[in-house]
């Protein structure tokens, strides 16, 4: 089901990409009070499993993620760093009380993966609501944006690759 992702990543970043083995979620990442997982902890965990030859790595996870200051995050990345993570928890239609829809879920996932990987290449948020680097604070905004970089972000990205 996720095999479309490597192609999409290659298309946007011009690096080859592959899917690695599943890894477990460390217990320490879970916050009992919030009933959520710390995305920062998970990033650390992902880094431990990063192959040496990998330029970047992105984890996909099904649990709800948070950072201490925010009620939730769709994902997190190390700005200019190596690792990123995206949660599908709030990308599912079910989360919003709607019937499941895989097509919509994968579309959203593709955007968020490109977005977080963009951060690892040093890209920051863009004011263009159609640009993949636009900050989406809600599922609605994810749906509004496209899975590609706007013109000015494309130029910036080229200089960072």
């Amino acid at each position: 089901m996720l095999c479309f992702l490597p192609k999409k990543i290659e298309m946007r970043f011009d690096y080859s990409s592959e899917i690695l083995e599943k890894i477990g979620i460390p217990e320490r990442a879970f916050d009992l009070k919030r009933n959520q997982y710390s995305s920062t902890q998970i990033l650390r965990n992902i880094l431990e499993f990063t192959p040496e030859n990998a330029l970047k790595i992105i984890g996909l996870i099904s649990v709800d993620l948070y950072i201490p200051v925010l009620t939730f995050v769709f994902g997190q990345a190390q700005l200019n760093g190596k690792a990123a993570v995206v949660s599908i928890h709030r990308l599912r239609q079910e989360y919003y009380g709607l019937p499941p829809n895989n097509r919509i879920l994968l579309k959203r996932l593709g955007k968020e993966v490109i977005h977080e990987l963009g951060h690892t290449f040093g890209m920051v948020h863009c004011w263009d609501t159609r640009c993949v680097m636009h900050f989406s604070n809600s599922i609605r905004e994810i749906d509004v944006k496209e899975d590609k970089f706007c013109e000015s972000c494309s130029k910036i990205l080229l200089s960072k690759l």
């Binding site: 925010l70 920051v124 948020h125």
Partner: peptide, 17 residues
């Protein structure tokens, strides 16, 4: 005064440039 708040807020704001 909380380190974790400073860090996570700074990182998150930095993503917005």
């Amino acid at each position: 005064d909380e380190l974790i708040i400073r860090q996570s807020l700074s990182d998150w704001l930095a993503e917005s440039g």
